[in-house]
Amino acid sequence: MNKENKLELYRMMLLIRLFEEALEEMFSRGLLHGTMHLSIGQEATATGACLALEREDLITSTHRGHGHCLAKGADPYKMFAELLGREDGYCRGRGGSMHIADLSNGNLGANGIVAGSLTISVGAALSLKIQKQDNIVLCFFGDGAVNEGSFHEALNLASLWDLPVLFVCENNQYGMSMASENAVAGGSIAQRAESYGIKSISIDGNNVEEVYNSVLEFKETIKSSGKPMFIESVTYRYRGHSKSDRNLYRTSEEIEFWKEEKDPLKRFIGKLTEEGVEIETLKEIESEVREVIRDSVKKALQSPESPKTNLEEDSYA
């Protein structure tokens, strides 16, 4: 990976972090209706994974999908607009935080249903195969999803039919409140994939280079073998599950530990400076990203509300 690539990874992680911090701020000012699921702390997985893909590769995302969406190329303005219920939003204000889709960048959409996208990713991969397209589908899901029946049906079929899916489990170690270790019998998520004949690895999901390299390698293998693969990317969410979470199921020491010791941005900044990247360069990127966020929020707040008309008509194609 060259320096440019690395700075791109840094820029994207920062964009996701600042995007979601801006959302938090907007939420506290009462500008946003509904709840949202923030991925602050998990930026390395979304960034490393999506930046290792090509534009034509597809992703499916989750309820915690802002990062996936941005990393796959979404315009922050159109995302803010969506969350604000504006006409310019990705879904014209009809989907909101949990349902952003950006088809032009290969993002088949976030999903409010846990494990909802697993079976869909299998269908998308079949479609790629039928249409003889040399791309893959990267399916994001959380550790909570692996206990839904559809997880097992999806892995089984993808393996039986040799479909080009890269399953990426973002194991942030909790569902909403249930610790993954109390929810997953047999202990290992990655091993579950092996039992369906799918090669899997478990990686440090807060190390953006490790994520990037793993996805890049697996993507190439999937393209040559045509078989699905599986990555468990271990990470941690700092914020509550959603805005109503009181964080009763984990200790503040644990949260602090991950923030202090394992933060993907901090670690990557450390690594970059060790490798000789000037602090000034990083600062420049930061102020540029801050400006993008600021401008996007401002523009979104000034953009027109989505019209109330045609809601019934638009329920059908």
Partner: peptide
């Protein structure tokens, strides 16, 4: 309710 999935935006939700 309108014959439409529930939109997320408040002003659309109250329309449905």
């Amino acid at each position: 309710g309108l014959h439409s999935p529930m939109p997320s935006a408040k002003h659309l939700e109250t329309t449905v």
